[in-house]
């Protein structure tokens, strides 16, 4: 019992540490990647190659004044960024980062915090809760730009959560389990076992929905800078402002992790002879591939308009994801009987 508790604490601390440093350095990485793609250097001033930039940003944001507009709903205004960040972080509880148990200070621990049998459902549920943070923040600011941003976000989350959920079902039919650990294990033994091949449609739909859910370009309507100033967090400043940013980056890592687990085999190596590389490294490589993809998209694509986003979500993505579920179900039924 005590051993279990200790192992849980160790993993929680490790996951939180890795996650928060990754989030911090993701901002640095994004600026460097964008700089590389746009013929410029990116941050270079703080530390060698600007490596201490996230630290400097953090100090700046913490020491900024926390301004609350006089007409704002103060309690909700204060709590909204937290509602946005907390679900983004606690959904990492079910992500399996590696395959084998490991020993730390004589205690055996798993490479995940917990393996619940409804893992994917838990992740989807929490990502919906995160949208409340955006909605409440935009509403409580009592500003028209924030309100418009929040309204856009609500509409966007409703239309794209649905697609993400539907696209996941295809994988669940193949794997026969909602547990992320079992889904990963079902894809072991070479890259041809990965679900990206039978579920290519679902993969594309999930990726697009994932970008939309994390409010990234080309779906960054809730915070469209050139239209709504900063969208739902126009009135936020200092640390509360950065909490929204942290939530966005944590969500990006989350979406990348889920895409890795569901479609790219999670910690599985693509070839048997590459098995000497630790599963943890494979997992990270795949996650960073998706993160790089997010940055790449941001450097390339313009922003969709609100009504175009809705049309695309409901008229193109939703029928496609329904068709994918039906076809998958029929094919799986015919193959197994």
């Amino acid at each position: 019992m005590l051993n279990d508790l200790a192992s849980a604490v160790i993993v929680i601390v490790a996951v939180l540490f890795v996650l928060l440093t990754t989030v911090a350095y993701l901002t640095y990485l994004e600026r460097k990647v964008l700089g590389f793609m746009q013929d410029r250097l990116g941050p270079m001033e703080v530390g060698p190659w600007g490596l201490l930039q996230p630290l400097a940003d953090g100090i700046k944001l913490i020491s900024k004044e926390d301004i609350i507009p006089s007409d704002a709903d103060k309690a909700i205004f204060r709590i909204a960024p937290v509602i946005s960040l907390v679900p983004a972080i606690i959904s990492f509880a079910v992500i399996p980062f590696g395959r084998d148990s490991f020993h730390f200070l004589g205690i055996t621990t798993h490479p995940y915090i917990t393996d619940i049998n409804i893992g994917i459902l838990y992740v989807l549920a929490l990502s919906s809760v995160g949208a409340y943070g955006i909605l409440l923040g935009g509403w409580a600011s009592n500003s028209k730009y924030s309100l418009l941003g929040a309204l856009r976000s609500a509409a966007q989350v409703i239309s794209y959560e649905l697609n993400a959920g539907m696209s996941v079902i295809g994988v669940l039919i193949l794997a026969g389990s909602l547990s992320l650990v079992k889904i990963e294990a079902a894809q072991s033994g070479g890259f041809w076992h990965w679900y990206i091949f039978p579920q290519i449609v679902a993969f594309v739909i999930y990726l697009i929905s994932g970008i939309a859910e994390t409010n990234r370009t080309p779906f960054d309507l809730p915070e469209a800078e050139s239209e709504l100033v900063a969208g739902f967090f126009t009135e936020y400043s200092g640390m509360r402002f950065s909490l929204y940013y942290l939530a966005e980056y944590a969500n990006m890592i989350m979406v990348s992790s889920i895409a890795t687990i569901l479609f790219l085999g999670g910690w599985n190596s693509p070839f048997a002879f590459l098995d000497f590389v630790p599963p943890f490294v494979w997992f990270m490589l795949k996650v960073y591939f998706f993160l790089f993809f997010f940055f790449w998209i941001r450097a390339t694509l313009p922003r969709l308009r609100y009504d175009q986003l809705m049309k695309f979500g409901w008229k193109v993505m939703l029928p496609l994801s329904f068709a994918n579920v039906i076809v998958t179900a029929i094919v799986v039924y015919m193959v197994r009987h």
């Binding site: 793609m37 050139s226 694509l301």
Partner: peptide, 16 residues
């Protein structure tokens, strides 16, 4: 114009 619509990279290329 591209930046307003959200395509940020064009801005840096034209400024070069």
């Amino acid at each position: 114009q591209a930046l307003d619509i959200g395509a940020m990279s064009v801005f840096f290329y034209t400024f070069r």
